[in-house]
Nucleic acid binder design. Structure first.
Length: 682
RNA sequence: GGGCCCGUAGCUCAGUCGGUUAGAGCAGGGGACUCAUAAUCCCUUGGUCGUAGGUUCGAGUCCUACCGGGCCUACCA
């Protein structure tokens, strides 16, 4: 089994964890059922982003990825995610395997060389991908557009078409340079991919449809798999000065990490990846479908490795129904979560929500609290908590008493639960398990051990009732073991016996002493969630401070603002005169009306008052960050003498100024109180 | 603009191949209990299955259009 390789440029957050927990549950389930199964992962370490960051931090890429690897491993461990091998794409095994895949692609005649002309940043000494270039749109003249398309007018172009292009790395003007790139002609495998994606059970139906509709209807485009130096990655052996593109070596990392595991466990790689009886299962997010369902099978096929048995694609995480947001504090790092809340909660909550499809998973705060408290604490743990102490001294009955068939029924239910786990239908599995917990609690209620304990003549009845309750509890714990390995361990401690085999659900435990019951899972307090959200709002600063490479050198300045904003949008190097500045007539204005524009995705229609009768209409692309009603009444800064612009929805007479990266990160400027509409900004 | 997925109770979701009266958990209401982490148990309110057509003996389920949400992709698909 593999989970996608996390990129070494960022920390693990709750969105990542959906995948690693989903996979971990599946692996643990397979192991519990007695299948030989290994969980393989690694850090994805190559590419421009890592190179640039290492350079900015003044250290080597190797040092950067070593730190991130340590952080990733620590985060995963806190969530009880247990890899059999956690490798790195920057490893000898991976370099070797990349060479092997490459040789096969060459031999199959799939590799072709083509000249690619790209913008080159002389100062940074590197070619620039489209999104590292910004300039003015050649069509509508909007400034600050990325190198591939204009988000104002929608025109697409190449970075070279931009007026006054600037590198976002150095702020300098890039120049055109050509370089030879190596391409894989994946079209030659079109027939194979058509068959493989559309037949069998390798992919979910939606994914197969997506591929058929988006890619397989046309000839597949050549895939550019090389990048000229400088690039952090592996140099291509038969093409000096060129490096494999990060998405070439990343999936090979699955194989390389397996190879590492094989070395330390005396196994043969081919038994897992070539021939043999092993299945390969990939768990991935829907954003990287394309790489895993077209290029990767093509590479495996050509290099004569096993094709994946199944690629399990899951959706994204939303929080309270919305995309994760740094400003709202819902972009939560794993470490921050674990500082405030027990990872057990998250594992159970995700399990109770995950299905076999690729729907997004919503982390609803109220639901999180109620599910954990009522299911885990109220139903499951409660069974042990309410009966264990009655038989602390005598232990479990010597033979299993008559329970009216409860234990046998719950054991028989195991197959349905296993089927649900196997199909990644965890929410179904959880529902089945909780239904058993309900029945067990009903039993305890009827048996009323708290009444039996008062009558010494009924001591055997009491012991029997508790024996039944604890055995039903033990079954539940086994069923939940893939999700909650820690609960399994706690139960072993209570019963003094292993609870590690699935078959044990059919064999009651009898005639043994038990240990003193200790709390197993605390109830969640909503306040803990609030605290976590609050802490996440401050996160960016903390992260940046921690990631500073300055070893034990100078203490951090009090305001350790990140350089990320400048990096995304470098300072303009052209100096202007005061006269240039005064050409721009900035005015304070009051929003007197704001409404949604029906068919526009990003626009809000603003009616601005400059005082007196002077009002004007401005369309602002701020819908993703502001609700129109909440804007009414506030002051904004408007560029009053901007040429009116005809838009689909009407004429826009100016623009309001704002900072931020876009999306939900848009911050309108606001004058200090006292400013009056119509006043000029000098 | 094109494509894909989704829409079932207040919330989160089941609902198999089209088949009887559409289900669960949580929340809400009423009661019981007092062993248990204010846990548990019993009873109970609540649905025009997004809307409108169509196919069918029969539609939550299949088809078409539309509305709404999400995602992907874009002067191609």
């Amino acid at each position: 089994m593999t989970a996608a390789l996390p990129y070494a440029n960022g920390h693990i957050h709750l969105g990542h964890l959906v995948e690693y927990i989903q996979t971990d549950i599946w692996v643990r389930f397979q192991k519990l059922r007695g299948n030989e199964c290994i969980y393989i992962c690694a850090d994805d370490t190559h590419g421009t982003a890592i190179m640039i960051r290492a350079r900015q931090e003044g250290r080597s890429e190797e040092a950067l990825i070593a730190d991130m690897r340590e952080a990733h491993i620590a985060d995963f461990a806190r969530f009880h995610i247990e890899f059999d091998n956690y490798g790195s794409t920057h490893s000898d095994e991976n370099r070797e395997l990349c060479g092997e895949f490459w040789a096969k692609l060459r031999k199959a005649g799939l590799v072709h060389e083509k000249e690619v002309t790209q913008l080159y940043d002389v100062k940074a000494g590197t070619f620039l991908a489209d999104r590292f270039v910004k300039g003015t749109c050649p069509n509508c003249k909007s400034p600050d557009q990325y190198g591939d398309s204009c988000d104002k007018c929608g025109t697409t172009y190449t970075p070279a078409d931009l007026i006054n292009p600037k590198s976002t790395l150095s702020g300098t003007t890039p120049e055109m340079r050509s370089a030879d790139h190596l391409f894989v002609q994946i079209e030659q495998l079109h027939g194979f991919l058509q068959d493989w994606t559309q037949s069998g059970d390798h992919l979910q139906r939606e994914i197969a449809n997506y591929l058929a509709g988006h890619f397989l209807g046309d000839p597949l485009r050549d895939w550019d798999v090389s990048r000229p130096a400088p690039y952090f990655g592996f140099e291509i052996p038969d093409s000096p000065g060129n490096y494999w593109y990060v998405w070439f070596d990343a999936p090979i990392g699955y194989v390389a990490s397996t190879a590492q595991w094989c070395k330390t466990h005396g196994q043969k790689l081919d038994d897992w990846w070539r021939g043999g009886k092993a299945e390969v299962h990939h768990f991935i997010g829907k954003d990287i479908t394309y790489f895993h369902t077209l290029f990767w099978p093509a590479m495996l096929k050509t290099a004569e490795f096993n094709l994946p048995t199944k690629i399990h694609v899951h959706g994204f995480l939303t929080v309270d129904g919305e995309k994760m947001s740094k400003s709202k504090g819902t972009f939560v790092r794993g470490a921050t979560y674990a500082d405030h809340l027990d990872p057990v909660y998250l594992r159970y909550y995700y399990a109770s929500k995950l299905g076999p499809g690729l729907d997004d998973l919503d982390l609803n705060r109220d639901e999180f609290v109620s599910k954990v408290n009522s299911d885990l604490v109220g139903k499951v743990v409660n069974l042990a908590s309410r009966t264990a102490k009655f038989i602390q001294d005598v232990g479990l009955s010597p033979t299993y008493p008559d329970d009216g068939g409860l234990f046998a029924t719950a054991a028989a239910e195991g197959e349905a639960i296993a089927t649900a786990y196997e199909a990644c239908d965890y929410n179904r599995a959880m529902r089945l398990i909780m239904a058993l917990a309900d029945k067990a609690n009903q039993f305890v209620d009827n048996a009323a051990p708290w009444k039996l304990k008062n009558d010494s003549a009924r001591a055997v009845e009491l012991q029997n009732a508790c024996t039944i309750s604890l055995n039903l509890f033990r079954q539940l714990v086994i069923y939940l073991a893939p999700v909650l390995p820690s609960l399994r361990n706690q139960t072993e401690e209570l019963l003094g016996q292993g609870v590690s085999r699935w078959e044990d659900v059919g064999k009651p435990l009898v005639g043994v002493k038990i240990n003193q019951f200790k709390h197993m899972i605390k109830r969640v307090e909503p306040a803990q969630l609030e605290a976590m959200i609050e802490a996440s709002k401050e996160e960016p600063k903390v992260t940046d401070a921690q990631s500073q490479p300055t070893s034990d050198a100078a203490p951090a300045a009090p305001e350790a603002d990140s350089g990320a904003a400048l990096e995304a949008e470098p300072l303009v190097t052209d100096v202007i005169s005061i006269d240039d500045f005064t050409k721009v007539d900035l005015r304070v204005a009051r929003v007197v009306n704001a409404e949604e524009v029906p068919k526009a995705k990003k626009l809000v229609k603003l009616t601005l008052s400059l005082g007196g009768d002077n009002t004007r209409t401005v369309f602002a692309g701020i819908k993703s960050a502001y609700e129109p009603e909440k804007l009414i009444g506030r002051l904004v800064i408007v560029v009053a003498n901007l040429a009116p612009r005809q838009m689909t929805f009407g004429v826009s007479e100016g623009m309001v100024v704002a900072a931020g990266a876009g999306g939900t990160e848009i911050y309108l400027l606001n004058p200090d109180s006292g400013a009056k509409p119509g006043q000029r900004v000098h």
